[in-house]
Amino acid sequence: MALGIVRDPDLAWDVAQDTFVRVHGHLAEFEGKSSFSTWLYRIATHLSIDSVRKERTARREELDDVNEADVAEAGEGILSTGLGNDPRENALRRELGEKVLEALEALPEKHRTILVLREVEGLSYEELAERLGIHKGTVMSRLFHARKKMQAALRRYTGRKAEEQEP
């Protein structure tokens, strides 16, 4: 999860270690209101986001609004045709995995974070809203944008692959 948010493997390693150090230092404060893993992941999420924000230079935040062009760009399932419909099989392909990570790393921090929390930690809309301190509607639109951008990046990759395979 830390790797997905902070991108840099060494920084992710540091964040992961810092998470356990924080957990160790604050064990007495764990009240058992959530599961231990939820508590740990919450700390890891905050540390990851903090880490990214410390490094980030001032940039214009992207809006979470959904506009018509965004929907139109979603395409007609071309990506699903290019990748096939078996995500497990796809994930095993190293090249695809690299492209997925490249696409993930290119996302703005807030889109990367929400996608990682959704897909890696498996948080629900409600949990994402609580974890990130945003409304459920914002969760949905932010996820939409994150997915759309991921799809756009992967579509370029599948497009190139299709061209390479043409006779």
Partner: peptide, 12 residues
């Protein structure tokens, strides 16, 4: 497309 890419991020 969402269905086709489901789980890719986690696996990668």
């Amino acid at each position: 497309n969402v269905a086709a890419t489901d789980g890719l991020v986690g696996e990668a």
